[in-house]
Simulated assay, not measured.
Amino acid sequence: MNEFSEQLIAELAAITPFRLLKSGRTLPVLLPFYHLVSDRDLPYRNNYDYPSVAQFEADLDFLLQHFRPIGLEQLLKGDDLSGCFHLSFDDGLRECYELIAPLLKSKGIPATFFINPSFVDNKDLFHRYKASVITSIFQSRNIQLSLQRTYADLASLDEMAEEVGINWDEWLADNQPYMTMEQVKSLQNDGFTIGSHSMDHPEFELLDEESQLEEIRESMDWLNRKLQPTIKAFAFPFTDFGVSDAVFEACQRERLFDLSFGTAGIKKERFNCHYQRLPMEQNTALSTQRRLKQAFVAYRLKALLGKHYARRS
């Protein structure tokens, strides 16, 4: 929301009927996404909010009231997508299997789960989760600590964990934050689609082009070997910021995926079969309607200025 103040967007959203904001065949398809849904306070997720089960169910009911759920097959066909939505979930956390999928099944909502092969079966932990765990330990000792939390800081995070007595293998065995391979396959057997989210969730803007391509190639190869998905989907970790046209063109030449996704919100895209998703874990204190109204207002204001296309640099 760089061009417009949050206050202006909030005020316009408050007075504009939702049916007007969401109408029109030229609007980008609505692609809400989450990481986690839980009623528990999870120390490894203190870097951003996540909805409770009740909040998440309210989101689903509102979406079903105003939009039509679709699967990746319809998204790939690219026919008239006005009034549709497709849900997705990143990181492959175990709540996807234990809490989210049962709710989706009960309401007949298709979805895609984007997973990191390095974390399946709790073999390793996302670097920002590691930073959160370490920070929570220092906070429990009344020590204030500000950690760097990028992929480039992974080695130093592991060293600090050792200094404070954390053994990641033991921590993962005790906490098991991620889904197992058996659970991932169960989701696929239930009709959900599984996509790649890179091997181990680096910030792509920190990688050179060849390293970005290797992350995509390796993770998509793993996905194809283990799950043989009908539609090959890739969601850029964090977002697609820092990913050049050359990388997208290479992915298209090599047919690495059928669909790919960023997280820039409701925006149009220049590349065919690349879509931007809307983060739903921001401002969870607001109602579902208010969050979506503000997102649509922001899009329409930017469209007036011709700034409604996603930028990657």
Results as ranks from 00 to 15, higher is better:
residue 87 L to C: 07
residue 208 D to E: 07
residue 62 F to Q: 02
residue 232 K to M: 06
residue 101 A to H: 03
residue 73 E to D: 12
residue 119 F to R: 01
residue 14 A to S: 15
residue 232 K to V: 06
residue 268 K to H: 14
residue 294 Q to R: 10
residue 120 V to R: 03
residue 6 E to N: 14
residue 271 F to G: 08
residue 151 Y to K: 13
residue 232 K to S: 08
residue 70 I to K: 07
residue 133 V to M: 01
residue 125 L to V: 10
residue 216 I to N: 00
residue 134 I to E: 00
residue 227 L to E: 07
residue 38 S to G: 05
residue 104 L to S: 08
residue 103 L to P: 07
residue 211 S to D: 11
residue 96 C to R: 11
residue 239 T to D: 12
residue 135 T to E: 04
residue 36 L to W: 05
residue 16 T to V: 06
residue 141 R to S: 09
residue 30 L to W: 04
residue 89 F to V: 09
residue 111 A to T: 11
residue 290 R to Q: 12
residue 241 F to A: 14
residue 144 Q to C: 12
residue 114 F to A: 03
residue 127 H to A: 02
residue 232 K to R: 13
residue 263 T to R: 01
residue 270 R to P: 09
residue 133 V to E: 01
residue 12 L to H: 05
residue 275 Y to G: 02
residue 63 L to T: 03
residue 82 S to D: 09
residue 103 L to D: 06
residue 106 S to Y: 04
residue 305 L to E: 10
residue 102 P to W: 02
residue 196 S to N: 06
residue 14 A to L: 15
residue 80 D to Q: 07
residue 129 Y to N: 15
residue 263 T to D: 01
residue 265 G to V: 00
residue 57 E to K: 10
residue 173 A to Q: 15
residue 77 K to D: 10
residue 51 P to K: 02
residue 232 K to G: 05
residue 116 N to I: 00
residue 273 C to Y: 13
residue 282 Q to A: 15
residue 181 M to V: 11
residue 258 D to A: 01
residue 24 G to A: 09
residue 250 A to L: 07
residue 41 D to A: 14
residue 71 G to T: 04
residue 165 G to N: 02
residue 215 E to C: 07
residue 237 P to Y: 04
residue 210 E to S: 11
residue 216 I to L: 00
residue 83 G to A: 03
residue 307 K to S: 08
residue 296 F to P: 06
residue 88 S to W: 01
residue 115 I to F: 06
residue 99 L to C: 08
residue 81 L to H: 05
residue 293 K to S: 14
residue 169 D to Y: 08
residue 100 I to W: 05
residue 203 E to T: 06
residue 166 I to K: 04
residue 257 F to W: 10
residue 30 L to D: 04
residue 176 Q to N: 08
residue 59 D to Y: 02
residue 112 T to S: 04
residue 166 I to E: 01
residue 159 E to N: 14
residue 94 R to Q: 15
residue 225 R to K: 12
residue 28 P to N: 03
residue 136 S to L: 01
residue 298 A to S: 11
residue 173 A to I: 11
residue 182 E to K: 13
residue 77 K to A: 15
residue 27 L to N: 09
residue 112 T to I: 01
residue 109 I to T: 02
residue 15 I to N: 03
residue 42 L to D: 06
residue 257 F to P: 06
residue 294 Q to T: 07
residue 158 D to T: 09
residue 293 K to N: 08
residue 89 F to A: 07
residue 136 S to N: 05
residue 249 E to C: 10
residue 10 A to M: 05
residue 256 L to G: 02
residue 93 L to D: 11
residue 1 M to H: 13
residue 130 K to M: 07
residue 12 L to W: 06
residue 262 G to N: 00
residue 31 L to E: 02
residue 253 R to E: 15
residue 288 T to W: 14
residue 202 P to C: 02
residue 184 V to D: 08
residue 254 E to N: 08
residue 19 R to P: 04
residue 240 D to Y: 02
residue 229 P to F: 04
